[in-house]
Amino acid sequence: MATIETHGLTKSFGDVDAVRDLDLTVNEGEVFGFLGPNGAGKSTTINLLLDYIRPTSGSVEVFGMDAQKHPAKIRERVGVLPEGYGFDDPLTGREYLEWAIRTKDADDDPETLLDLVSLTDDAERMAADYSKGMQQRLAFAMSLIDDPDLLILDEPSTGLDPNGIRTMRETVADVAAEGTTVFFSSHHLNEVEAVSDRVGVMNEGELVAVDSIDGLRDSVGGHATLELECATRPTDLGVGSVEGVVEATVDGHTLSITCADPTVKVDAITYVAERTDVVDVLSTTVSLETLFNELTEGGREGEATQEVVQ
């Protein structure tokens, strides 16, 4: 059964379509990473799911219920870490948690939650005085109350240090293992890559790709590059004749070989090693980051293309 389902979902602000004709299905029990550069429409989509904003056209259903007609019923079963929240009331971190537990009619123990997000020592301080990272941890703890059936996290790692990010990742993996559907947005690919079953990539209001991480990787074409440093100038070796080698160039003592897919690399290395002394081997595959940048046309952040050394 689909936990989240949108059909032809469109939200316009004036002339700008923040989200355009979005058809998205998130299945029960999966961890769905929602990826895209800033301004791609991720938060707008989440705000529509939570009925913070109303669609211009199309429909949003959560647990098979219309998001606009049954917001309270949906909120009973959802845990939310929203974007653009504020802890403005003069309440302590513990009081915020207690308020949230009471409002959800839950029986969670505030101490356990505070401990989970390492806020036990700061529980009696005003949440408004917390650092951004502490507020983010408190908000995360609030989203976990009452063991939700669906956890919606909007840019959850914002402001967190590596420790906080690890805790959050582990916790998300734990709740997902217990059957909670997780829908989270991010503009950090590695974060999504690490925990998601499936990812959806948004760009300029449109969903440009939905697939599993492996599926996405396959769709890149699996291009792999080899750089072989040789003892002598590796000219006229005829490596281009090896099946699956797309291109070979020489620069000084370095021979660069582009392979159609990673399995060809061994053949290419063997071929070259039989004909000359290979001093060093550097092998790279096209990363998801490259794919992400291609899908989002470099993204609005202009993150540099980075290849992962294997």
Binding site: L50, Y52, P71, R75, V80, P82, Y85, Y96, T103
Partner: peptide
């Protein structure tokens, strides 16, 4: 302030 995000994140 964004406080309303929390008010409406819970069953209200």
């Amino acid at each position: 302030s964004g406080g309303i995000k929390f008010l409406l994140a819970f069953p209200n």
